[in-house]
Simulated scan of single mutants.
Amino acid sequence: MRKLRLTADDDRVQVLCQNDEKLCSLIHVIGDYSIELQENYFETIIEKMIGQLLSVQAADAIRKRVRDLCPDMTPASLSLTQDRDLRAAGLSTSKISYIRDFIDKVNNGNLCLERLPHQSDEEVMRELMQVKGIGVWTAQMFLIFSLGRLNILPAADIGLQRGIRWLYQQKAENIDFEFIYKKWSPYCTIATLYMWELVNRKYEKQYSDMEELVKFP
């Protein structure tokens, strides 16, 4: 399985450090970091669709129940799963209809998953967003976690917003994502991963700001 590995001496990380002192301090506190890229594109998109507008815990529970119904998670096997069983697993009627639309587009060739790695970020998003229920956020998560694209800034993501508010001591309504994009490009994805990690480690709850974190790690 492919990984996106990040270290303090990585050239991409160094570019971010040169452009953003606060982010650089956070990177050095977090240290080496990596994510596994999800190479089963069909399964990944299904999982992202299931997780929309749900807590992590609720989404994980439903994913497990759906996987129990369909262990191999292919278009053919999932299309044979009954709606009543998917509802019993916790999926809403609307999400089931979105999943059916996704399966139909894959099966009839309107959406070719194998072609996505060879397309630009914008082309991938257009391809995915033709599916009912797949919006900007879901398409961006696919670009990050499956294709490993390096310059994705999911501005609507709550975790990213929380990280930015804490690191830069900003109110939510004052976040200038155009400025953030210019500051972090061409490695917005990498900066976003560090924002998510600071939230995962609960730095925003344990420390008032970056200065306190550096002083009392």
Results as ranks from 00 to 15, higher is better:
Asn200Lys: 15
Leu153Met: 13
Lys183Gln: 15
Arg84Cys: 11
Glu204Asp: 14
Gln170Cys: 11
Gly133Leu: 07
Lys105Leu: 09
Leu91Arg: 00
Thr74Pro: 01
Ile134Met: 04
Phe177Pro: 00
Gln14Ser: 11
Arg12Lys: 12
Glu47Phe: 13
Asn107Arg: 12
Arg100Val: 07
Arg165Ala: 11
Val124Thr: 09
Trp184Ala: 01
Asn40Leu: 07
Phe216Leu: 12
Ser97Gln: 14
Trp137Asn: 00
Thr192Pro: 01
Ile152Arg: 00
Gly90Leu: 10
Lys205His: 14
Asn174Ala: 15
Ala88Cys: 10
Tyr187Ala: 01
Thr138Trp: 05
Lys132His: 12
Ile30Phe: 02
Gln119Ala: 11
Gly133Ile: 04
Arg162Asp: 09
Asn19Phe: 07
Arg165Gln: 15
Arg67Thr: 13
Phe142Glu: 03
Gln130Val: 11
Asn151Ser: 10
Gln169Pro: 04
Arg87Lys: 15
Leu150Gln: 13
Arg67Trp: 10
Ile152Asp: 00
Pro75Val: 03
Ile175Met: 02
Phe42Ile: 05
Glu211Trp: 09
Lys64Gly: 05
Asp9His: 11
Leu54Arg: 10
Leu198Ala: 07
Gln82Ala: 15
Glu211Ile: 10
Leu26Trp: 04
Arg162Met: 11
Tyr41Thr: 09
Ala155His: 04
Val56Trp: 07
Leu16Asn: 02
Asn40Lys: 12
Phe179Thr: 12
Ala191His: 00
Trp137Thr: 00
Tyr41Ala: 08
Tyr194Met: 02
His28Thr: 11
Ile99Ala: 03
Lys95Ser: 08
Asp72Ser: 13
Leu6Phe: 08
Glu36Asn: 12
Cys188Met: 03
Phe102Gln: 02
Lys64Ala: 13
Cys188Glu: 04
Cys188Leu: 05
Phe177His: 07
Tyr98His: 09
Ser55Ile: 03
Ile175His: 02
Glu173Val: 12
Tyr41Gly: 08
Ser77Tyr: 08
Gln119Glu: 13
Arg149Val: 06
Ile50Asn: 03
Lys183Tyr: 04
Arg5Lys: 15
Asp20Cys: 08
Asp32Lys: 10
Gly90Pro: 10
Ser120Arg: 04
Arg65Met: 02
Val136Ser: 11
Ser208Pro: 07
Met73Leu: 13
Arg201Phe: 05
Ala61Leu: 12
Phe102Leu: 12
Pro217Ala: 06
Tyr203Asp: 01
Met141Asp: 00
Leu111Tyr: 06
Phe42Gly: 01
Gln206Ala: 10
Lys105Thr: 06
Ser79Gln: 12
Ala89Tyr: 03
Ile190Ser: 00
Met125Trp: 05
Leu153Ala: 04
Ser120Thr: 14
Arg201Lys: 14
Leu78Thr: 00
Gln18Met: 09
Glu36Pro: 08
Cys112Lys: 14
Leu91Cys: 02
Phe42Tyr: 10
Tyr98Val: 08
Lys105Ser: 03
Asp101Met: 08
Asp20Pro: 06
Leu53Tyr: 12
Lys3Cys: 09
Leu54Lys: 07
Arg84Trp: 12
Gln161Pro: 04
Leu213Arg: 04
Arg149His: 09
Ser97Asp: 14
Gln130Trp: 09
Glu173Tyr: 05
Lys202Gly: 01
Gln119Val: 08
Lys215Val: 04
Leu150Cys: 07
Ala89Phe: 07
Tyr41Cys: 03
Lys22Tyr: 13
Leu160Met: 13
Pro117Met: 06
Ser25Ala: 14
Ser185Leu: 06
Glu211Lys: 15
Met73Thr: 01
Arg165Tyr: 07
Phe145Arg: 06
Glu197Ser: 05
